[in-house]
Amino acid sequence: MTFDHPQLFLDGATDVVIRRRFSHPPAKVWRALTEPELIRQWLSPDLTDCQMDPRPGGSFRYVWPEFFFSGPVLEADPPQNMLHVEHFNGDTSQGPTVRTTLTHDGSGTRLTVVMRYRDAEARANAIQQGFTDGIDAVYGRIEGLTFA
C-alpha cells in the first residue's frame, strides 16, 4: 500500500494522527528526523537554532525568529520509535506528547505520528488555534509539530 498523500485523522478524544509512506528505509528516515543539520534542510529554512538529542533524558529545541518549540525526549529506540513532549514558546503547562513510529513498508518506511493532547478541549484548542492564526502561523506551527 502506498500513501501519495498523508493520512490525517482525529483518533479518540485526544489524538491527532498523521501517517505517510516514504520510499526510503527507516534508518535513513530516522537520520533525517533526528540529525540537526538534516532537520534544518527539510523542516524550515527560517530556523535560527536547531537542537535535537534523541535519547531518553535528551531534549529538542527548534527556534524560529518569532516562536520556538522545545521539550524533553522520553523514549528513543532508533530507528523505529521516539516519544517526546512538545511545548510552545516554553509553556511547560501544556503541549502534546508526540509519538513518532517508523516501520518497514516494503523497501520504504511507514511513518506514524500520534500527537496526544491532555484532553479533548486541549486538542480542540490546538486545532482551533492553528486554524485561526492564519496560514503563515499555521505553517510555522505545523513545522514545529511535525517531528519536533
Partner: peptide, 27 residues
C-alpha cells in the same frame, strides 16, 4: 476545509523530506 489545509501543509513538509532522503546516501 481545516483538515484539508492541515493535510496540505504536512504534505509540503513531507515532500521536502522526500527530496532530502533522495539526496542522502543509503545507510
Amino acid at each position: 476545509h481545516w483538515l484539508g489545509q492541515y493535510r496540505a501543509l504536512w504534505e509540503a513538509q513531507f515532500q521536502r523530506l522526500d527530496s532530502l532522503l533522495d539526496s542522502l546516501e543509503d545507510p
